[in-house]
Amino acid sequence: MASTTSVAETIWEQIRSTRSVSDDQLSILNFLFGKNFERATRIVDEGGVKRVSGIPSRRSLFLVVGESKRKEEYICFPQHLCTCYSFFYDIVNRGEQICCKHQIAAQLAEAVGAQQEVEVTDEQLALMLSKL
C-alpha cells in the first residue's frame, strides 16, 4: 500500500509542477485508482471541486460534488479524509481502496489548477468542520 501511495504522490507532484497531465501520467493514475480515477476526472471536468479557504488563516478544505442526482458536496482532505460513504466503507472498513473518487478529484483539480476558489471567514470554516 505504501508503494502505491508514494507512486501516486510522485505523479501528483509532477502534474503540479507542469499544471498539465501527460498520457503516461493518466495511464499510471488510471492503473493505480481504476474506476475511481475515471469518475474523479468527470467530477473535475464538470467543475465539481471547490477549495474553501478561511480568512485570515488560509486554512483550507475541499468541497467535492458527488455523482448522485442530489449533487451532495463532501468535505474532503485529499490525503486524509472524505465525508462520503465510500471512504468509510471501502477505505476505512474494508481497506479495499487507498482513497475515494472525491479525494482523487481534489488532488487532480488542485494539481492542474481546476478547482474553484472560495474564501470564507475562519469562523465559517470552523462551522463547516463542526458538522463533521
Rank of each mutant, 00 (worst) to 15 (best):
R70K: 09
E119Q: 12
C99M: 13
K69V: 12
D24Q: 13
R70G: 14
A40H: 02
I75C: 10
S53P: 01
S60Y: 13
F31P: 03
E123W: 06
V118F: 14
T41A: 15
I98K: 11
A105L: 01
R58C: 13
E9T: 07
L32W: 00
L127H: 11
E13R: 05
V21H: 06
D122A: 14
K131D: 11
F33G: 10
F37R: 00
E117I: 15
A40D: 03
H102D: 14
H102M: 13
K35I: 11
V92M: 14
P56Q: 04
F33C: 04
F33Y: 12
C99H: 07
T121V: 03
S17Q: 03
P78D: 14
L61I: 12
C76K: 00
A40Y: 00
H80Y: 09
F31V: 05
T5Q: 12
I91D: 02
Q25V: 15
V65S: 01
C76P: 04
L29I: 07
D90N: 12
A114D: 03
C99L: 11
S60E: 04
T5L: 15
C100E: 05
A2W: 04
C82K: 07
E119M: 13
D23Q: 06
Q79N: 12
I11T: 01
A126T: 10
I55K: 12
T5C: 11
K50L: 15
E38R: 10
V44M: 12
W12Y: 06
M128Q: 05
H102T: 06
K131I: 10
S86L: 13
A8P: 05
K71I: 09
I91K: 00
T41E: 08
R59E: 14
K131S: 13
E96R: 01
Y85W: 13
A105F: 15
Q124I: 04
E73K: 02
L26F: 02
S53H: 03
G48Q: 01
I98V: 09
K50E: 03
L63S: 08
I11K: 00
G34R: 08
C84S: 04
R16F: 11
E123Y: 08
G113P: 06
P56N: 10
D24H: 06
I91A: 02
F62V: 05
D24R: 10
Q116D: 10
T18Y: 05
S22F: 01
V49L: 12
R94S: 08
Q107T: 07
L129M: 05
Q103L: 08
L61D: 00
A111G: 11
R59P: 05
E73S: 07
V64I: 10
